[in-house]
Design a protein around this nucleic acid. Structure first.
Lengths: 195, 195, 195, 195
DNA sequence: TATGAATGAGTTTTCATTCAT
DNA sequence: TATGAATGAAAACTCATTCAT
């Protein structure tokens, strides 16, 4: 019998529709400001079904932030090119491009981390994962002249900037302009022999 | 000795007590998760007084984030020392030290910016202000060998990292360890002749 | 005999119980002076149920005034007799008798029409409906010697007087005394050849 | 010393401004739906002043409905002409014209009479006063052929219609059209020998 | 006579959650 | 699995009234 519960099935079960709708609403309005009734309505399911699938509203939040692939693979595969500069550009561009896929969860995670250990650890995970990915991508470049610690630090700076843009500043202006200068700064450091 | 029940500053009006209490609670638990009743109780005022001074809860939030001095002065004055490294260390240390004064508002502003234009613009203001201050501090160092654009970019990277630490990642580990490596990275760039 | 706690009709859903209770309280004390909590208590339902069935208190008011049959049928069927006088007497008497069925809604509608278009149009509807009914009743009398316009006007005068008695003046004195004279006045006009 | 409290002085004391503002707001929104704070704001006086002049909100309502001249004089003086028809036309026209002066109080009185004896008796007073005035006006016409009781009844019919128009139906259509037919009906009765 | 901050009970409304079907 | 009425605690907000100045 193959009637196993397929949580990630690509055919949207009602359970998945609830998760997707919750993700959108949590990102747009915040967790507290989104009622389960509204989630049910916009998902097109009866209100009782939300609590059939998720014992509490918090469980639904956890499902939203956990049942998502980490961004690492997508980022790693985007890093083409030989030089630090090329690779950084590709990665930062990909992060910007991913906004519409992944941004919602990132916003949710960083907004709701306060006082919720499960979410906070997911935030740390996402940050560490993204940083490690960028560090890997940079370390593999042909022109890097830098120790691993410095590469890791550079990666974390990039990720900080992009995450902050996404979560809080993204609404203000397209971040792409500033990213160019940022890339130059990082590249210069990683490709110069430390004095 | 007069054991009068003045829990707050002797000059604070009740209006200010409400703002201070709201700031603390909004930072600790978030705007939505903080009831006006709780603010009133912890401020030691009747619940109606909150709405006498602030027509809506949102107006109270705006008062909290607007009736605060920008952090620039305090940061600028903290930057002593001659070299980029010294100044950066002083500024980053000061930012960490300022947590108890300013952190609450920063957390609030970045958490609640989503979908609230007034808050979002305040977030941008705080970010721009802090970045400009750090850039000024760095530009005045004796050993800077870099154009203004690169200094500005470096400042923004610092501020991004510190803000993100404060807002979302601060709970995970003491940020101080990583700050050292970050400072090295920035310093190196600003003191080397661009190739 | 089963002393079951069915205060209302055995077939009434809780929604209908809420409407019935609201109708009574709105008529007795006015819309603004009736709290939804009191409606819930007197209807014997939890307070939340009111807002499950009616999104706002105003929606409940609209339901009260809209989910009622027009009084025309009951009035029309009451008009027995051959002469204008007989029919007028029967209709006016029936209007007085209907107080306990219909009066509440009439009071509500005319009290709350000010500034509420939906209610005002319902008021106009009730007035027009009652006037048309009375006009029909009169026109069918054997002894009418009058054109349709005059019958309609007479009907509107009757309805004006009865409605105003019901709504605002009914509390002052039993209206029945004056009704006799009013009937005479109308009858005389409708049965005399216009000069 | 002539510093007697001139409640009706044409120079608007603050007390009178409060009454005038309350009259307007009570008529527009109803007594319950008008807060004393709003009255104070729109009157341009501090909120405390309302309760300096009027012990309770209800006292202010009473002042609004009592410190107004009865409409009789104005109506009586308007009745020029010799015939019933001429006089009726003049009176009804004057009633319509008076809308902007007197209408507010009439609306208030009839809306708020329910359950408030002082207001209810004022409603009765206004109705009786208007009816008596119209009856007087009619009785003095040269062509009346009717006993006093019938004149009084006719007057009450007129007043009922006009008051109901004012209070509840006035918003629907200009009442003037229908008034013509009503006048004809009344005139006919009062000028024909009762059979 | 005037002022405006202060008070707390009351109001409408929201909402996560339960449950009988 | 699915449904939608039901529940009651808690939320934001209102407001007549008081009072020290």
């Amino acid at each position: 019998m193959t009637a196993s519960p397929q949580h990630h099935s690509s055919r949207s079960t009602k359970r998945q529709v609830i998760i997707d709708t919750a993700e959108r609403l949590f990102a747009e309005h915040g967790y507290d400001a989104t009622s389960t009734a509204r989630i049910a309505t916009e998902a097109g399911v009866p209100s009782g079904l939300v609590f059939y699938h998720f014992a509490t509203k918090l469980d639904l939040l956890l499902a939203v932030v956990q049942e998502r692939p980490a961004p690492s693979e997508v980022l790693r595969s985007a890093a083409r090119g030989r030089t630090v500069r090329q690779r950084l550009r590709a990665v930062v561009a990909k992060m910007a491009e991913e906004l519409e896929n992944d941004r919602a969860v990132r916003i949710i995670v960083f907004r709701e981390a306060q006082g919720r250990p499960e979410i906070a650890s997911r935030a740390a995970e996402m940050f560490a994962d993204a940083s490690a990915t960028v560090a890997d991508v940079l370390a593999d470049a042909d022109d890097v002249v830098a120790d691993r610690a410095r590469v890791q630090t550079a990666a974390e700076l990039v990720v900080s900037r992009v995450f902050l843009d996404t979560v809080a500043l993204g609404q203000l202006e397209p971040a792409t302009k500033r990213h160019a200068a940022m890339i130059d700064l990082i590249v210069e450091t990683l490709t110069s022999t430390p004095g």
